[in-house]
Amino acid sequence: MRHVPRAMFYLRLVAAQLEMSTLTALQYRLGFWTEGLLGLLWSVIGIAPLFVAVDHLGAVEGWGRWELVVLTGCFTILSGLFTAVLQPALRESMTHILKGTLDYVLLRPADGLVLCLTCAFQPWHLVEVLGGLVLVIAGLWLGEVEVTATGLLAGLATGAAGLMALYAFGVLVLCASFRALQLQALTHVMEALMDFGRWPAQVFPPVLRLLFTFVIPLLVMTSYPAEALLGRLSWGTVAELAAVSATLLVLARLAWVRSVRGYTSASS
């Protein structure tokens, strides 16, 4: 009935949140250099182990040098989005939980989860996203891969599924930290785990591959989009991955509703 105005309201709300955090971020100029550019540098340096493997083996499980560059590009885009949008929001929300100021967030007349997931933003990490895009394009170009329209579509679809899975996972971590504040360290676990997203799916032993596809959908975020772009992924797999993400999202939403009901607010 009022869906369209609500959507407009949420758009305005998210814009206002982004504006606030950009204004805040601008207070810290040093962040631009330390976090943005060095983040990009680090994303690129991170390929080192992969290239050590290629150096010794010629190709890693059927992935040649340039294909690995595409994969690294996908990874860099994702980790850039993570550090620009999701990670700061998770950290800020956890600080709110710790200090008890989550009270104010929950008292605002809008969806608490939307408020939490948009409450902080680090614009300069978008540099990494740009860098990742450059890597993807360069890898495809130099590897002389012809990207078909369906490949591109499948790549975007799996990428979107991966991003959703990442968000769902972040929300689950946030919910866990409602229970025990120390579980905030899970974000570090999450960050460190993400690093394995650099590797092609085929490298992992079957058990880990299942784990990283269905439980911690790391590969959905990086390896599969790259494969889709390279035209190696069937639509069946794409649908499967979308289903995984959707399931995680539903789980995350349920966990959120439960957590808020059990919220006890920091000491009275």
Partner: peptide
């Protein structure tokens, strides 16, 4: 709990 988290992180 955080200790366990830490061990988890370092299991990489």
């Amino acid at each position: 709990v955080s200790m366990l988290m830490w061990v988890l992180t370092t299991t990489f």
